[in-house]
Design a protein around this nucleic acid. Structure first.
Lengths: 210, 210
DNA sequence: TCGTGACTTTACCAAGTGGTCAAAAAAGAC
DNA sequence: GTCTTTTTTGACCACTTGGTAAAGTCACGA
């Protein structure tokens, strides 16, 4: 009789083994498909095939396409903000920022699908993520800009616009995940991201060294 | 009897006034829709509505969704390569590259939809554009890398990896078009691209000044 | 082992999709 | 004006899409 996986004796986070496994399968498949096709372009059939489950079975675990997407986006937001949160106001300014850049590069390498999911969402005008951006990212962004500005005012960093600095860090680091298809064509398929890490260190070190 | 717009007394490029107007309407509408929804996400109905024409009328001018997309991509490739082609091997190295960066920034401002169309295509693995990338972009990319390497070897520019240099120029300049939704949220809707132009000039000037 | 609830599948919609076709309506040419 | 060609439209089609209903199968505790 119970056909809602959230009810029964396992409530809240206490999912059965099968539920844990299948929700993971579905979200992983959906990440793949949404990241490469965008929200509208992705189909439940693709996700089902990728997950190795039937379409109605997918809809047993999630109420619909939208809910899967939203779930992915919510998870993503946390993963995405994390490297920025780790910037330590007490640390050595230049090294903190360069460490942040290295974290971002490594995230691009380790989570390219997440990066592309995010890129797809923002490209389309961030219809489902704009509230998250305003409530989650914006405050952190503002704080970090103020922190960097403080460091610059104190002469610990060369002066430049903190907002554009952060934009350029995001742009350059995520480029290796988001434009991977182009990077592969132009570099002959070698994993370019390693050379990229050194290059970006030089680029931002030269910019920021007082 | 003639129902092929390419036949009749107007052949080749000699399109009637109506044909010119409507093909332009359609391509402009399609650019808008493809850029924000991706290929699969875009529908002929959306394009038709955006163009102010009926769906069968769209298919009178183009044989199908695919042909519209391919036409846009072909046009795009030319627009896209142009700023890079203008780099003058005889010019002053630093100023040539900075001028290139300024052209790219201005293109992001002037043709954001084209930038997003390109981003969408590459994000999805460049399924329709990979041949173009290999035949059109790759040779130009290689030549430019060699040119820059030559400049560096001659001591006209500080040394760095030319491939990653170009990637970082593309990433930072196109970011303002592709991630506009995010940039707007974080800067409070001000047109951030103007400040971006100055910032990027500083960034790459510091990197490349010998 | 058997019953109960958790899980899965088969069969099925209704709406939306890219695309066709023949007929109607405009444009031109004379 | 009238005759021909170009352009536009309304009706339609086959297929895909997100989603549902109900019947089936499985796992596990009593």
């Amino acid at each position: 009789m119970k056909d809602d996986p959230d009810s029964g004796k396992n409530q809240g986070k206490g999912l059965s083994r099968i539920q844990q496994r299948n929700r993971k399968l579905i979200l992983d498949a959906a990440l793949e498909v949404f990241a490469s096709e965008g929200y509208r372009g992705a189909t439940l059939d693709q996700i089902a095939a990728q997950a190795g489950l039937s379409k109605p079975n997918i809809l047993y675990y999630f109420s619909g396409k939208e809910e899967i997407h939203v779930t992915l986006l919510n998870r993503l937001m946390e993963t995405w903000l994390d490297p920025l949160r780790q910037v330590d106001p007490q640390g050595e300014p230049l090294e903190e920022l360069l460490a942040y850049i290295h974290r971002k590069v490594r995230m691009s390498k380790q989570f390219p699908r997440e990066s592309r999911l995010f890129a797809n969402e923002v490209l389309q005008g961030a219809p489902r993520m704009k509230p998250h951006l305003k409530s989650g990212l914006k405050p952190l962004f503002d704080d970090t800009c103020a922190l960097i500005q403080g460091w610059m005012d104190a002469g610990k960093l060369a002066a430049c616009d903190p907002q554009h600095l952060i934009f350029s860090i995001w742009a350059t680091t995520q480029h290796y995940a988001d434009f991977d298809a182009q990077v592969k064509v132009l570099t002959g398929g070698k994993s370019a991201i390693n050379g990229g890490e050194d290059y970006l260190d030089t680029l931002f070190r030269k910019l920021l060294t007082p």
